[in-house]
Amino acid sequence: MGVDGSDTGQDQGELRPDRQEEVARAAQALASGGLVLLPTETVYGLGADASDPAAVAAIFEAKGRPRFNPLIAHVADLDTAARIAAFDERARALAEAFWPGPLTIVAPIAAPSAVCDLARAGLETVAIRVPGHPLARAVLAAFGGPVVAPSANRSGRPSPTTFADAFAETGDRCAAALDGGPCQVGLESTVVAVLDGPVRLLRPGAVTRAQLEAVVGPLAQADDDAKRSPGRLALHYAPDAPVRINAQAPNAEEAFLAFGPWPDGERVFNLSPTGDLAQAAANLFSYLRAADRTAPAAIAVAPIPDEGLGEAINDRLRRAAGFVG
């Protein structure tokens, strides 16, 4: 594996023999209580055995993450998820529609020993998903249990979408690290709560509101269930430089995240010159990091349409800006 992301062997078929050896080492590291850098289709995760409080505590220490923020348990398939969480017909319908993929379902915990209290932030619910990346699924299948894997950045920083960025953030804390190439989605998973009452959207993501509502009908807002989702801190995904959103143009000494046609410039990073929201989502965190490395006075971000994937992009940008535009 290479820090430059080359020759990763990422595909949808059989893994190469050297990749199989990496998967086996990663599974063994998890079983021994170690941390693993894990590629997913959304962002790189910092993985640990979800049932091991000491391993989960090591994630919090490595990230500097507040203990009240719950973690997502990643599993290899729907059958495993349904043994850990109590899925009703709505949850199962969502899982069948969007798994493997970037959707996290919050449901009542059915097997508390499988995802420890620390990983659930003391809640009686569990956040769970089946990731879409073949390497992640291979590790989960080899390990045989749920793995909590929050984004591999230090807490509050932009999530890493390349192996190099992930390794630079928390790689020194890991017993194994898997390079799966650049993340194809580039935004954390959508999170929904399937509890009593209507399905609630806790965090927008790559699976859009319209896609969800096509399966389960109109969504309710988070309200009191927001605490059950990761990524809900007011200041989150933040680079070192201040972030100014909905900017029509950058000021002097600002870097600029453009969207749509915009002239090239020394500190201009165009999320999508064609105005493609999927491209913008995939580029968001890596471009925030790249802009931050220019040591600007601030990072200005062009307006992003608040529709489809734009809802998730704007959610991340508002948090990166501390809700201050």
Rank of each mutant, 00 (worst) to 15 (best):
Q10T: 13
L257K: 03
V192G: 01
R67I: 13
A136D: 05
E124D: 15
A278S: 13
F256T: 00
F163R: 00
G310V: 11
G45S: 02
F323A: 06
F60Q: 00
F68A: 12
T80Y: 00
A91Q: 01
G13K: 03
A82I: 00
D225Y: 14
L46K: 04
A50N: 04
L195Q: 01
A278K: 14
I304L: 13
A177G: 12
A55H: 06
V215G: 00
A138C: 11
F167K: 02
A290N: 04
E266A: 15
V199H: 02
Q279C: 13
P204E: 01
A141N: 08
S32G: 15
G231S: 14
P146L: 08
R293D: 10
A206I: 04
V207R: 00
A238D: 05
V147Y: 08
R232W: 15
A220V: 07
G310F: 07
R67K: 10
A141E: 14
A54H: 14
A29L: 04
A142I: 09
A295W: 13
D117H: 12
E89R: 03
D88M: 00
P39C: 08
S286I: 10
A247C: 15
R19E: 08
S51M: 05
R16F: 01
I304R: 08
V115T: 06
A300P: 09
D240E: 15
P39N: 02
D165Y: 05
P53C: 02
R232M: 14
A168F: 02
A50C: 12
A110T: 08
D240Q: 14
S113K: 13
P242N: 05
G217K: 10
E22M: 09
A110S: 12
T162V: 04
A91I: 00
T294L: 13
Y44N: 02
Y44T: 05
L140D: 06
A73H: 03
P239S: 07
E254T: 12
G5Q: 05
G13F: 07
P112G: 09
L38W: 09
R318E: 13
D11Y: 04
G101S: 10
T161V: 14
V185A: 00
A73G: 07
I109S: 07
A31R: 13
A24N: 10
R19M: 04
A226H: 12
V126C: 06
P134S: 14
C183H: 07
A136Y: 12
V185S: 01
R267F: 10
C183T: 11
E21Q: 13
A119N: 06
F256P: 01
T161G: 10
